[in-house]
Design a protein around this nucleic acid. Structure first.
Lengths: 175, 175
DNA sequence: CTAAATATCTTAGCGACTAAGATATATGCC
DNA sequence: GGCATATATCTTAGTCGCTAAGATATTTAG
């Protein structure tokens, strides 16, 4: 097998492995939502809030791809559950910031313990240098995925009609 | 900063980076479903079918965590869209295998092109040896995530009542 | 041959989502 | 300042996918 062929095979295998582990990550998240007793989107928003900190309702809609109306529902539920607080922006009173309630976050955190332990175990087998490589990769993968998501959304905005439509249900919103 | 402290910080940073890129992966999947015009669960099932090949309806329910009733709906929609076929098992006529329609899969594949290109670009910057490290990691992460999912489900089956309940909505099913 | 187990499907009802428009606030133009 | 337009969130009506429960069909065990 030629040198480039070997690499191509490696890339293919890598793609599938990434896909598998990514799919399993999705499943884990769904299980967390299920066990915690909250909707999937609600948990996803909590994750975003955890990573980005205090964000507006509008930004949540933007990032999740949900409508602002749906976000109202998400925040209503999370607020009722005591996980987040609505904080009106005093500079621009149209805006509503959503902020996590720090004490409540620990409650949710328990469900991530199994995953954290599993990952600790995996990471434990790597040297510092190797971990730095993984870190570099994770950051690049994130940037790549972000760009790919935008590109895909762009495909929706400019429908060249050459694009072989799937038309499984009514055309989704253009937002 | 001590040697172990540096590693702890690295692990923390790595965890967050993984979380971010994983979250972005979820978002990409949701965008694909949105652009393709199919429900999220439907796409997830297509992914499983792609990775595992021909599987029974029951196994789809098992892996996705959906009820068998929900899977009936998923398969109905996918079959109507021409993406999968139901094939009754002749050995055990209760079972129904779900198989992807190979010609139709390409149609769906187009939506993964932006992600594939982004990942190709990322992978391109790594040596074969580095890619092998990433492959090893991806496989281990998958196994770890699978185990963590099972552990989390187990937490639900044996509720010690010591577990700080969240009780956001009615207790989910025990399945 | 009957009873129990297994695999999928059916039905009723519910919760989360979208689309559209209402409300409240901010900004730009004269 | 005052009016029109833009922006951010919320409200409402209707739709879709989900669960729970039970029906149906088939297999397995005794």
């Amino acid at each position: 097998m030629s040198r480039t062929k070997a690499r191509a095979a490696l890339l293919l295998e890598l793609e599938e492995a990434m896909r598998r582990s990514s799919a399993q990550g999705v499943l884990y998240g769904q299980t967390v939502a299920n066990v915690a007793g909250i909707a999937n989107s609600d948990l996803e928003c909590m994750d975003i809030l955890y990573l980005e900190g205090r964000v507006t309702a509008g930004r949540l809609a933007e990032v999740t791809g949900l409508t602002t109306g749906a976000i109202t529902g998400v925040v209503d539920r999370l607020e009722k559950a005591g996980l987040v607080r609505r904080e009106r922006d005093e500079k621009d009173r149209r805006k509503v910031f959503i902020a996590v309630v720090p004490e409540a976050i620990a409650n949710l955190g328990q469900f991530y313990v199994p995953m954290q332990q599993a990952m600790e175990k995996v990471f434990g087998a790597y040297s510092d240098e190797e971990l730095r490589l993984l870190l570099r990769f994770a950051n690049e993968a994130h940037k790549g995925a972000l760009a790919a998501t935008e590109a895909l959304k762009g495909l929706l905005d400019t429908p060249p009609e050459k694009r072989p439509e799937l038309k499984l249900k009514k055309r989704p919103r253009q937002s």
